[in-house]
């Protein structure tokens, strides 16, 4: 799982961990197992689609990866750090350091502008970002003119882009997107899927998309179908 990685910029040898490792995880809500000895890994800068219908355990897996739920057994590591055990503050810290999450409806803090959301995300992640850095990212996502806009003033697509900016500004090891396209038509779903893939690729971030939207299957080389196994 661990591999030796040469940092091109520093020329030093560094030990790099996978952005996401799920190892023999079992989980239940007090009834039948939702997961039993479930394992998966995402390689550095890898892009994976977690596909499954409602009730297949997607949301449970998202919550496990985020550290909001604890597995009965097994381990989940984000960038080599355990998020499946430890105290809540410890799990909060792992999430803060390595993970960015975009939910279907929870995209931005409604009281803050787009710029305010990005600055808050960076501050919570312990990163200081310049106005120029924020502007460049918004420019890249074609919403630089919406920096001062509040979330309710954005269109669906603009809000999606702003959420991606909010996620990428913290330079996460893994971007987790939960149902990013389920409310969109085909054309927009394709646009969003491409945007996610392109942006994470450009920023060197790994991507895990959890969805029931089978239209996305064609956009990912690695698809984990919670009903039908791995492709």
């Amino acid at each position: 799982m661990w591999r030796l990685h040469r940092s091109s910029s520093l020329g030093k040898l560094q030990l790099m961990a996978s952005p996401l490792e799920i190892e023999e995880v079992s989980f239940d809500y007090g009834g039948p197992d939702v997961f039993q000895n479930f394992s998966m890994t995402i390689a550095e800068q890898g892009q994976c689609l977690l596909l499954g219908p409602s009730g297949s355990g997607k949301s449970t897996l998202v919550n496990l990866v985020c550290g909001f739920l604890k597995p009965r057994s097994g381990f989940i590591r984000i960038a080599g750090e355990l998020i499946s055990s430890g105290s809540e503050p410890q799990r909060d810290a792992v999430r803060r350091r390595h993970l960015a999450i975009i939910f279907q409806s929870l995209r931005l803090v409604s009281a803050l502008s787009v710029l305010g959301n990005l600055q808050l995300a960076a501050r919570l992640a312990g990163r200081s970002v310049s106005r120029a850095e924020v502007s460049a990212l918004l420019e890249e996502l074609d919403i630089v003119d919406k920096a001062s806009a509040k979330p309710h003033q954005l269109s669906q697509g603009q809000a999606q882009r702003a959420a991606i900016a909010r996620a990428l500004i913290v330079k996460p090891d893994l971007l987790l997107a939960d149902e990013p396209t389920s409310a969109l038509d085909d054309a927009n779903a394709e646009r969003v899927a491409n945007l996610f893939r392109q942006m994470t690729k450009d920023h060197g971030t790994s991507l895990l998309v959890a969805t029931h939207d089978a239209r996305l299957r064609t956009h990912f080389s690695t698809v984990l179908d919670l009903n039908g196994g791995e492709r």
Binding site: R95, R96, L124
Partner: peptide
Amino acid sequence: EPDLALLRVMGASRR
């Protein structure tokens, strides 16, 4: 609640 949950998702602690 959703905003505060998002803050938690973004890394804010319960405290």
